[in-house]
Structures are given as structure tokens and as C-alpha cells.
């Protein structure tokens, strides 16, 4: 594989380094200080060829180049999936969003097959969680049920693995989505979706509380700093806040009467 031109290398570098830190010139000089590909002067080339280890390193270089390219593609797709996950205003949009995400996954499915499924887990994890959020919300709107891991995995492009960790972490985000849904519905229709007046039906708040109970019962103490253990604490807090927001919105609805769920519309998590 040919070495990439420096400009492209720079943009790649800015992806792997801390997102919005450091100026471009800084990361440029950082790159220049290393021993890198910008040494294709004739004299160097001659010296390079003299090393008996070159064939070995050339093979390594090709392997690493492929690895970095795959990694970049996956990072980009994961970001695009996140970008495509815009909160839908109407149910119709969830389908569109869903298709946009699917497209990103098919672009990188080949990069994530076999042994590489876990190799790039950290890069794709964010995108998968976003997808989980979207797909579980869509499933809820249709069936009022929580999507199971195998149902969710079934909707994913073949070859893309849904880990238990990403499944749970995506479900945490579903709570935020449900909150948004509940509050929007209350603000526009003046009542909580699902419940209505007909007694025995569950409403969104009942479901949110059930989810909260399940999450809180989950023992992730053994996970340490890996996957779940790393993110679960923060997501748990956000999840609780979301449920409580809906709870106080319902309270507000009862106190102030229908159609006046004010002061609640803006504070989404």
C-alpha cells in the first residue's frame, strides 16, 4: 500500500488524537518529530534497502496500514451513526433514521467480520449503542415491549456483533428517548401516552419505572473498568434523572391540569 499523502495523514491523526484539543499545526509538528513516512529522499531509500529486515517490516507496514484504514472507517461510521440518531418528532421519522443507520453499518460490515468484531469493539461501540437506542425505541412504539438482545441482534447487518454490554448501554439511552416521547406527548396531547383513561393499560411512566428497577438490580460490580463497568455508573444517573423528570411532569399535569406541563419541556437529558 502506498503511504498516504501528508494532508490525509493529518486529518486521520486528528481523528485518533483527542477530538477538539490541540491546533492543527501542533498535531502537525508532533507528527513531524516522529520518524515517519516523509523520508522518501533517494539517499534514505538506499540506506533503507540495506537492512536485511526490510521484507519483514514491509509486511508489517501493509498489515498495520490495513488495520489503521479499517479503524478509521469504523470510527467514521460510528460517528455517522451517532449523527444520524436525531430525536424523531414523529414516529415516521424513526424509520428514516433507522435506514440511515443501517446504511452506515453495511459500509463497515466487512471490516468487522471474524476476529475483527472485537478488535474494533471500542471504535464501533458508540455507534451500536446509538443504534440500540433507536431500534429499541422503534420496537417500543410498535409493540410496547422491550426488545430482546436476540431481536435487536437480528435487526443488525449480518456480521455485526451486538455485545451484551452495548445492548444494556443502549437500553439506558432508551430511557432518555422514552422521556422525550412522554414529555412531548404530554405537552401536545395533555396526557401520558399509553395509559389513556381505560384503567388496566400500562402507560409510559409504568414502563420507565419498570426499566429503572431492572437496571438498578443489575450487578455490574464484577465488570471493573471494562465495557459496562466504565459507563454504567454515569448512564445510571442520567437514566434516573430521566425517569424522575417524567414523574414530576405527571405530577405537574395533575396539579396544574391537563395541557399545562410547563417548565418540563426544555430539560431533556
Amino acid at each position: 500500500m502506498e503511504p498516504l499523502p501528508p494532508t490525509e495523514a493529518m486529518s486521520e491523526l486528528s481523528i485518533t488524537s483527542h477530538p477538539q484539543s490541540k491546533s492543527e499545526s501542533e498535531s502537525m509538528s508532533e507528527q513531524m518529530s516522529g520518524i515517519k513516512r516523509d523520508h522518501n529522499g533517494v539517499k534514505k531509500e538506499k540506506e533503507v534497502n540495506a537492512s536485511p529486515f526490510m521484507p519483514m517490516f514491509e509486511a508489517f507496514r501493509d498489515e498495520l496500514d490495513e488495520h489503521h484504514d479499517r479503524r478509521e472507517r469504523i470510527i467514521k461510521a460510528s460517528r455517522d451513526i451517532t449523527a444520524a440518531n436525531i430525536p424523531p418528532k414523529i414516529a415516521l421519522e424513526t424509520a428514516e433514521r433507522y435506514t440511515a443507520m443501517q446504511k452506515q453499518f453495511s459500509a463497515i460490515a466487512a471490516d468487522l467480520t471474524g476476529i475483527n468484531a472485537w478488535r474494533y469493539q471500542r471504535q464501533i461501540s458508540g455507534g451500536i449503542q446509538e443504534y440500540m437506542e433507536a431500534v429499541s425505541f422503534e420496537h417500543y412504539l410498535k409493540h410496547q415491549r422491550l426488545i430482546t438482545i436476540s431481536e435487536a441482534a437480528g435487526t443488525l447487518q449480518e456480521g455485526i456483533e451486538l455485545t451484551g454490554d452495548d445492548y444494556v448501554l443502549g437500553l439506558f439511552d432508551l430511557v432518555g428517548e422514552l422521556m422525550r416521547f412522554a414529555i412531548t406527548a404530554m405537552a401536545t396531547t395533555g396526557s401520558l401516552p399509553g395509559g389513556g383513561g381505560d384503567g388496566g393499560r400500562r402507560d409510559v411512566l409504568v414502563d420507565l419505572r419498570e426499566l429503572r428497577t431492572c437496571f438498578q438490580a443489575l450487578d455490574t460490580g464484577s465488570c471493573g473498568g471494562t465495557g459496562l463497568g466504565k459507563d454504567v455508573e454515569k448512564k445510571m444517573e442520567v437514566m434516573k434523572t430521566c425517569v424522575e423528570k417524567v414523574e414530576s411532569a405527571v405530577y405537574g399535569l395533575i396539579i396544574r391540569g391537563e395541557g399545562k406541563a410547563e417548565g418540563l419541556g426544555s430539560g431533556y437529558c
Binding site: A9, I35, K36, V48, A50, M56, R61, L64, H68
Partner: peptide, 10 residues
């Protein structure tokens, strides 16, 4: 010399 031809990322 071998390491020099590798395109290492950050």
C-alpha cells in the same frame, strides 16, 4: 530502518 517505513498512528 525497518521501523522508519511503518506508518504509525498516534
Amino acid at each position: 530502518a525497518g521501523f522508519q517505513i511503518l506508518n504509525l498512528k498516534n
